[in-house]
């Protein structure tokens, strides 16, 4: 349990550093790939909604503390993404490549849409066209990153706790 906790802290720190230092400039139409969202998707997909919600909340809170948005907004979005992917994993094809791609795309779109809704609530301006473009590019990044990130996280979890998640889709 402690090792799993440590693993998640390390994964979260690496994702935050990668997002803020490495990936921030790799933008396409103003949208940068998000490893933080992808780690939430990966852990929720491999370990279920409970892990997805806990990890999503913790990582979201960290992004809020380091960012300039409302404290709690990132946590709300990422815990919702964690629950969505964890609870919905049984509806797509488990650990296959198609399943990972669907999870990555759905997770990225959900995160982008969640942030957009919260932005609207706090009175930020935006247009439907820009939002659709952001959703499309976010989905593309999610689809591209998922086959790399999801198997790696599932492999790490399985090394730490081989008995857990026998019915989970992390056995590819």
């Amino acid at each position: 349990m402690i090792l799993r906790g440590l693993l998640m802290v390390v994964v979260a720190a690496v994702a935050l550093l990668a997002d803020t230092v490495l990936l921030a400039d790799l933008t396409l139409a103003g949208v940068a790939p998000s490893l933080t969202v992808m780690t939430v998707v990966g852990l929720a997909h491999a370990d279920g909604p409970g892990t997805g919600v806990r990890y999503g909340f913790g990582l979201g809170l960290a992004t809020d503390l380091l960012g300039d948005g409302l404290l709690g907004s990132g946590a709300l979005v990422l815990l919702a993404v964690g629950y969505l992917i964890g609870a919905g994993r049984r509806y797509w094809t488990g650990g296959t490549l198609a399943g990972q791609v669907v999870a990555g795309g759905v997770g990225s779109v959900a995160a982008t849409a969640g942030h957009a809704v919260l932005d609207l609530l706090v009175d930020a301006e935006g247009s439907v066209g820009a939002l659709l473009q952001e959703l499309a590019v976010g989905a593309l990044f999610g689809i591209l990153l998922a086959p790399l990130v999801l198997p790696a996280l599932a492999w790490l979890l399985e090394r730490l706790d081989p008995r857990a998640g026998l019915e989970s889709p992390r056995r590819w």
């Binding site: 935050l16 997002d19 803020t20 230092v21 921030a24 400039d25 933008t27 103003g30 949208v31 940068a32 998000s34 933080t36 979201g60 960290a62 992004t63 809020d64 380091l66 960012g67 300039d68 948005g69 990132g74 979005v77 995160a111 982008t112 942030h115 957009a116 932005d119």
Partner: peptide
């Protein structure tokens, strides 16, 4: 040195 994490890329 860095941009903020998450969706906000305006700082």
């Amino acid at each position: 040195i860095a941009r903020p994490p998450g969706a906000s890329r305006w700082s």
